[in-house]
């Protein structure tokens, strides 16, 4: 099966000149798959981390501490209004070089965080800043009277949050959240700039060595169309599963 596919692409190259090395050269294929894996790792970890950052930030913003609220506000404003690429550089080069090195098991000096970890950190903060705003607007959209009703039934503040406010807020902000998470998936390509071997990086390596820019561009296009498509599909499934009959519109 695999041999047949490889043979077909080899033939395609010999007869038409379309050189899809990834599909018959195992070395290129492995690089491509590794890049895809790295993109998935970046996307999944930053999505999760940014959701946590968003939830905690939104909670703090509705909390009593003025100082903490101000800090979260500042964080949101700064990260929303500066280029994510510069944020990555600032973290990786700026802070990364200021942090002390650690000694690895074999006695070598290594930075505390490698480039992949810095990319995950800064991308999570970037998307998390948007998520804070999104979650906050969701929580604010829950009517005060609904919370009052929960209180009148004996719910504590925490239980009312858990069973009434958060489920409703999540539904309100889901469309905006979808957008932001899809955007985050696209933004993971910026990790390329600090040499994180994700899909774009791997594909570019392949095309610079095999001189097949057009073909690899096509592969790149299909790859990202597929990844974004899958995420859109998942989020729409989720949105549909959470839809409340007769609620809103």
């Amino acid at each position: 099966m695999i041999e047949a596919v490889q043979a077909w692409f080899q033939r395609l190259y010999e007869t038409t000149g379309f050189n899809f090395t990834v599909f018959y050269d195992p070395y290129d294929w492995d690089r491509y798959v590794a890049g895809l894996r790295m993109t998935l790792l970046l996307a999944l970890s930053t999505i999760l981390a940014s959701l946590v950052i968003g939830a905690v930030g939104a909670l703090v913003q509705s909390g009593p501490s003025r100082l903490l609220r101000g800090l979260v506000n500042g964080f949101v404003v700064v990260f929303r209004n500066t280029p994510p690429l510069v944020q990555i550089f600032f973290f990786y080069f700026g802070l990364g070089t200021l942090l002390p090195d650690v000694r690895t098991a074999d006695g070598l000096r290594a930075p505390i965080l490698n480039n992949v970890q810095w990319a995950i950190l800064s991308l999570s903060l970037f998307a998390g800043a948007f998520n804070v705003e999104i979650f906050r607007s969701g929580i604010e959209a829950v009517p005060k009277t609904t919370i009052e009703a929960a209180e009148a039934l004996g719910y504590t503040r925490f239980k009312a949050y858990r069973h009434v406010v958060l489920p409703l807020a999540l539904r309100v902000c889901l469309p905006a959240l979808n957008n932001n998470l899809i955007n985050l998936l696209k933004t993971t390509t910026l990790a390329y700039a600090i040499a994180v071997p994700e899909t774009l990086y791997a594909v570019k390596q392949i095309w610079s060595e095999s001189q097949n820019v057009l073909e690899m561009m096509l592969v790149l296009l299909v790859t990202y169309a597929f990844l974004v498509g899958v995420l859109v599909w998942i989020m729409h499934r989720w949105e549909r599963a959470l839809r409340i009959p007769g609620y809103g519109r």
């Binding site: 209004n81 500066t82 280029p83 510069v86 550089f89 600032f90 080069f93 700026g94 070089t97």
Partner: peptide, 24 residues
């Protein structure tokens, strides 16, 4: 010098912030 990274990129952040925040 490694210690120059943060201020230089920080300056870039500042420029974009001062430009984009009012728009926002």
């Amino acid at each position: 010098r490694p210690e120059l990274f943060a201020p230089l990129y920080g300056f870039a952040l500042l420029c974009f912030f001062l430009y984009c925040y009012p728009i926002d």
